[in-house]
Design a protein around this nucleic acid. Sequence first.
DNA 1: GCTCACACTTACCAATTGGTAAGTAAAGCC
DNA 2: GGCTTTACTTACCAATTGGTAAGTGTGAGC
Lengths: 202, 202
Amino acid sequence: MHLFASRGLDATTLQSVADVVGISKQAILHHFRSKEDLHEAVLSELVNHWQRTLPQLLLTAGATKNRFDAVIAELMAFFTADADRARLVIRELLDRPAQTRELLSRTVRPWLSSIAGYIRIGQERGVHRADLDADAYLIQVLLLAMIGTATCEVTGVLLGDETEGRQRFSKEFARIAHTALFTPRHLKPANSRPSNKESHES
Amino acid sequence: MHLFASRGLDATTLQSVADVVGISKQAILHHFRSKEDLHEAVLSELVNHWQRTLPQLLLTAGATKNRFDAVIAELMAFFTADADRARLVIRELLDRPAQTRELLSRTVRPWLSSIAGYIRIGQERGVHRADLDADAYLIQVLLLAMIGTATCEVTGVLLGDETEGRQRFSKEFARIAHTALFTPRHLKPANSRPSNKESHES
DNA sequence: GCTCACACTTACCAATTGGTAAGTAAAGCC
DNA sequence: GGCTTTACTTACCAATTGGTAAGTGTGAGC
């Protein structure tokens, strides 16, 4: 996974994988029919991890007071825990758009749809901004989390130290996502009546 | 550029380039010493284009009433005009982090710094949100614009038609960037006195 | 002790890779 | 018309690629 994520599918040779693992190239081909087989195995392992983690993520976040910020924090944590996850997904997005689209439709779309519904409820209650496009918003939050963690090695230095950069990035990411989602508190009506009167700001 | 962007450096063979261009592989090696040479040429062409376009972009945007939205729109236009630009940059970010960091430091950082200064002035005037991290914000806006256009082929379908998806994406992108930057109008003091009293919303 | 499945290695292979060397045809300059 | 430069082609090459075929050793089950 590390090699596929950091170098890409074509640049990763079976030999290089074998060297890292400490076995011969043919030992790999004994366990996996082909390089493509290995690649799919790595990919599905990532997807499985995602599928296992996400529900737990939403549950633990749901227990908290401000659910949303917790989800954002957990989302970032998932990718920052291993930047290769984000890198791998982005590479798939670039290298095999058609297959990845199909994969995401199966694995991620249901979650997005469900959260989007949650956001729309918030919109009707005036908690979430009325002019927000829930689906597009969620996709961008997800993409931003991924590209951010995938490239933190590069962008980190533009924000001082790399660890400091990561922190500033995470914080600003949470702020952007939060601000773009919620209506300012004083605009929210005391009772939870729908309110679309917040016109385009500034 | 198209091949490098869509397939990556290693997956792009000199032969495939030659086939597309309609000449022999050796004809390419006649004009470029090596594959790496060709790659650098493609890359520097993109950088030059960026350097040529950006000042003009900021100028035309500056003439407009709401300067910021115009810049955002132009930024998206730059990448949507040719999605390969975004793809190529992202690939460089992943494939060669060290060199790309150095490249971006030279070519993009000055612009970011200058715009960040502009944002900070806005913060002092209370126009821009006080809790915003100008540098981190700008980087994320840039990254989001790139990853969005680079993957529109994939994400587009999640938002209906691909062209419709692109539109919704662009619109939501502009909204997010706008909302995360500006303070709500009614919070902005009538005279342009510094005001940091806007606490964390919600 | 025999068998057999399994994990792995050695030996090998055709295809493709980026790259070199040498030749060639045409266009411009004198 | 000769001469040189430019743009390219043909012929070739060593290295590496993913992958196959045929062994080898070892531990478990009987």
